[in-house]
Design a protein around this nucleic acid. Structure first.
Lengths: 157, 157
DNA sequence: TATTGTTATACTCTATAACTATA
DNA sequence: TATAGTTATAGAGTATAACAATA
């Protein structure tokens, strides 16, 4: 349960209305700009997040991927099938669990991930243009806090 | 162009990677939780944002709505058609501009907006549970900053 | 000429439920 | 029993381009 925050009721009411909208507006601005930018490469912003999750080189299962990109297994499968058709991803059998699939980037997938990372640089430039390094760190911290409490990764009493 | 931020290159690299992902994770957590919560009322989270934009009572054009919810006219039209079929929204002719349409909530639309606002209270409770009032205000401020610079509402030189 | 909105169209993401096979 | 993944299915949001009507 949140604190009562007595004495700032009006401010709270405003923030209570505005935080969800501000979060949405900021995310959508980033998402659409990224989608538009990556369109010429035939990759969506969401697909890029998947590629980025695999870019460290370790193979992951579809379930692990679903968790990392905040999605669910059937959505991830649909996305992976598209990426596989485009030759960016490979789904092999898992070494120790015959139920699972082991997903990894192909050589083409690695190449395009690097290309997309570079292609997205101007967008990240804009993203960070109006805030300081300290503010950026603060922002990441606060975003993680609200994500955790929304996902009931409860830390509090 | 962003500042160089010399001397903190590694920290910057981390934040540069993590801010987009943290923004995405926080937004999606909120979005999905809201969608799930509103499903029993037959309204999506995005539709709720539309309803909320109209909840002050003033009629808006579809173009104005598109801007407010960070979308585009054809998407807004599709959403409004759905809401109109469900009797939550009315699209009339505009008083002074015959090209435009004047969109407003119906009585049922106003009722369901109120109900949904109440229904979303526990989610907002979670959203604010782990951050202070000051942090919430900071968060809104920073989110608006990055949204502005992404949308080229440029304030800087 | 520019703007508001419509239409047609196509695609991605999303999500549930029933299912198979493995653990 | 529980888990990993598949399949079928359905719907929502997204976006572009061509178009009509009006400003």
């Amino acid at each position: 349960m949140p604190q009562q925050r007595l004495g700032l009721a009006e401010d709270l009411m405003d923030t209570e209305r505005e935080l969800p909208l501000a979060l949405r507006a900021a995310y959508l601005a980033l998402h659409r700009k990224t989608d538009a930018r990556f369109a010429e490469h035939g990759v969506t912003a969401d697909q890029f997040v998947l590629l980025a999750s695999l870019s460290r080189g370790e193979a992951l299962t579809q379930r692990e991927l679903a968790e990392r990109i905040s999605s669910d297994p059937s959505t991830v499968r649909a996305m992976l099938v598209l990426l596989e058709v485009n030759g960016l991803v490979q789904r092999g059998s898992h070494p120790t669990d015959a139920r699972a699939k082991s997903v990894a980037l192909t050589a083409a997938g690695k190449r395009i991930h690097k290309k997309l990372w570079r292609s997205g640089q101007p967008i990240r430039g804009e993203l960070f243009a109006s805030i300081s390094v300290e503010e950026a760190d603060t922002l990441v911290l606060l975003l993680r806090k609200i994500e955790s409490s929304l996902n009931n990764d409860v830390v509090l009493a």
